[in-house]
Amino acid sequence: MNISVRYHTPLRWARGLANETVTLPTDASLVAALKHLAENNPSALRGMLLGPEGEISPHLVVFHNDSLAAAERNAVTLNDGDELRLFLAVSGGHDWDRAGACGRKQKESGVDLRAEGDGETRNTRSSG
């Protein structure tokens, strides 16, 4: 079956084009389609589509036939003629693995990031 894929900025830069038609096995899943794109395209695009464990990147926003494919996107099955529109997310997010001294200390000391955390939640001091 054939599906159409529309890339939006900055995926468009990484892919080097705005639209393409992709041929996939019948009843391929959305996940399979994204993995197909990742495997057959430049690494810059691959990094935007998939996370380090091969999962769909949390920063990828996918519209499947004009509907946002969000929490359920791992279960989406595609049909011939479907359209995927791919965007980078609006919000980034904090990654403890990227956090430096401040973030690591907060993590190690068990600081509760959660908005409704109870008790006296202290920030940590780099001086200890």
Binding site: L68, V90, S91, G93, H94, R114, A115
Partner: peptide, 17 residues
């Protein structure tokens, strides 16, 4: 509110649980 603008469950989980 940007966390739910396009769905950012990772950050929502980190911040709120």
């Amino acid at each position: 509110p940007t966390i739910d603008e396009t769905g950012n469950p990772e950050e929502a989980r980190r911040r709120y649980g």
